[in-house]
Design a protein around this nucleic acid. Structure first.
Lengths: 238, 238
DNA sequence: TACTCGCGTCTCACATACCGAGACGTCAAC
DNA sequence: GTTGACGTCTCGGTATGTGAGACGCGAGTA
């Protein structure tokens, strides 16, 4: 039975992290859970603490640290982009409009993936494009589930209100008509990370002439379904 | 500038993970990004891959792996433990008995937090202790809301029945008298995650002499209140 | 009050685990 | 066919990780 990676220190560090997966532990608890001698467990836990893979709680027990969350967010993004193309193509074909995926970056949103309607009048948003967080259904979705402080700060100056964002939370999707750009309507829904945070917004957008001034009834179902597919892709355990 | 944790291998492994934070990399890319010699970078990346902190994409490049997400999910549940201490102390003082918080782990329950009665005869359950899922009010609470398959599988061999668990669901709390340990009575109630799943059981336990053979009327209200407080703490959005 | 025990933290001689120069085979470009 | 870059592997050497034991502290007990 080969249970070593070939690097003993990393095997031991992985065992420390696995022990802390259940509950925060004192050094004595770590020793018991890992079977490592006390100085070894102490040294490795402190080294992992230095790199923020491990933290200390108020009573000094070791617990898993914030670096894990930072790195995990990246794995979510890789998987998100891997899954996005086919989901957006399907959404584009189902809706007949252009589809995009947005992430929030500071006080802007970035188009990180897109599938455009092939012919005629359409809303064209190139991958990499940075758009405002103060208008548009995707901005609403990226903001609606933020905490109250950040939500109110963000609404200040936006074309939508906190009441609109409460409606977004209740419905599970957002729409906009001529908000970000005259003549453009859109419908957006949230893609969530496994811990429930809103990670991205998936959108359908196009000219008001086709989407009408009330685009929700026609497009929301397909957009919510695409968002759910991406959310499910992020939740899959390897 | 001291930039070492004291364990060189962990410093190098952290550098590998940091390099992969930006984008998936070939081995050559890893060598460039970390400055490590090629065999060293290769060996560490493969060891991290063995432990699933690193994965390979379709073209063989190294990328951050799923273990990071698994561990990061746990850091979110630390909020439960952060809130538990004060709630358990309040419950202990209100009831005059020892209070504990249990999580389920496989086919055992782990005491993840506790506040003990200070003097005299008491039920002492140390943090980290693993107890049976086949007896006790906390086990009942951790099982009562499981789906039918898992509930029936778990009841097989337990001292309580499916009828007992149906009563727990109806009442919203469970009690036990001499079930897990002779002479010990307890009352437990469920702590729920934001999505409604039962995440933990909060319990009061002590000698039958004080709690009596019918501990519910005296203790259920305080236990249910403590469970509701923890449930509310988990529902707060960041 | 004194003693004991368990805790977290540190030391340092030593064994061995990690290291990396170099080798090897593969593949793509010229 | 040749060259160079790539990923993967070998193995002798030494730098690093190791852990028994020491230390100081605090809590509990007699």
């Amino acid at each position: 039975m080969d249970n070593s990676s070939g690097v003993g220190v990393l095997d031991k560090a992985a065992a420390v992290l696995a022990a802390l997966e259940g509950t925060p532990l004192t050094l004595a608890g770590l020793v018991e859970a890992t079977g490592l001698p006390r100085p070894t467990a102490h040294r490795l836990a402190c080294a992992l603490e230095y790199h923020r893979f491990v933290a200390r709680d108020l009573s000094g027990r070791f617990m898993l640290g914030p670096r894990l969350r930072e790195l995990a967010a990246v794995t979510g993004e890789d998987r998100l982009l891997t899954s996005a193309s086919s989901v957006l193509v399907t959404l584009r074909d189902a809706s007949g409009e252009s589809a995009q995926l947005y992430r929030r970056q500071g006080d802007q949103r970035i188009c990180v993936a897109a599938a455009e309607r092939m012919t005629g009048l359409r809303d064209s948003v190139p991958v990499g494009a940075a758009l405002t967080m103060q208008a548009g259904s995707a901005a609403q979705v990226l903001l609606a589930w933020e905490d109250a402080d950040r939500l109110h700060r963000a609404v200040n100056g936006a074309t939508f209100t906190a009441v609109t964002l409460a409606q977004v939370r209740r419905r599970g999707w957002a729409h906009s008509v001529g908000e970000r750009e005259p003549g453009v309507a859109s419908v957006s829904a949230p893609v969530r990370a496994p811990d429930g945070r809103v990670l991205a917004a998936v959108s359908v957008s196009g000219p008001i002439e086709r989407l009408t001034r009330v685009p929700g009834p026609r497009y929301a179902e397909a957009v919510v379904k695409a968002a759910a597919q991406l959310t499910a892709a992020l939740a899959v355990v390897d």
